[in-house]
Amino acid sequence: MINKLKSKDLIGTKDLSLEEILLILDTAESMKEISSRDIKKVPALRGKTIINLFYESSTRTRTSFEIAGKRLSADVVNISVSTSSVVKGETLKDTAKNLEAMNPDAVVIRHSSSGAPDFISKILRCSVINAGDGAHEHPTQALLDLFTIREKLVLRGAKELKGLKVSIIGDITHSRVARSNIYAMNKMGMDVTVSGPSTLIPVDIEKMGVKVFTDVKKAIEGADVIIMLRIQLERQEKGLFPSIREYSRLFGLNTEKLKNAKEDVIIMHPGPMNRGVEISADVADGQYSLILDQVTNGVAVRMAILHLLTGGT
């Protein structure tokens, strides 16, 4: 059994081995208990500095990383780009080098350009964690999704995730969550299906090892897990689908469509949700929804990753 991650960085689930994914999930399981204590803090990362560098807006992910770092006693610094030198025209490379000069132990970065985390990870000696880059990857989201599925199924007595059927529904083309989940779930031996309007499903996505259904009913039938993706309203302006109402009717998850699903199906959403568009309110708040468990587990998974990358060595 391995006890550390190979790379100093976490750029994508594509680069992780099955053993590394399991190490992160197992470590997260131990971390989760800390958040349930009266004193929600352990000294593991005392004296470490973590910088949150977010070039895109985010509430959940940034807060989750901040809480994760603080529960491990690290000092967490948030840089929001709208108030930083970036608006004065500083390049990503210069920003990264300037941050490095202050000797942090990890930089958590979200950027609208795919490849930005990889780019700075080659410049920086410290760990770089991808908190979402363009339409590339969002590895911590995929790992917390796996954690949430595993936690639920272990309660039901399942031993492993292998063979589970997962349907990811929505804008697959622009979704870094979908890509990170597909890589990670394939490694776990899960059976992934994607579904959505054909204008929002990449050509040749079957080569990633997934099945494609443009009929959502077929994607829902027999799925153990359904992951709904946020539909970005600006995609409609670009003409990728005719109207929000039509999208909602054809691809939105509601009680009616759920009738085709397994009795004990799990429903997840990476947030932020468009209630009434890709998911109806009664499904989002219903008994099958694990959407808030995902948020709780996100802290544990990020604690595990921060500890594995910056703890100890």
Binding site: N3, E33, A44, A304, G311, T313
Partner: peptide, 19 residues
């Protein structure tokens, strides 16, 4: 594991288990 003071000097990392 999360309370140790000797992780720096220890050759291999300790896997964090549940409390």
């Amino acid at each position: 594991t999360l309370y140790r003071d000797d992780i720096k000097s220890s050759p291999s990392k300790h896997i964090v288990k549940k409390t």
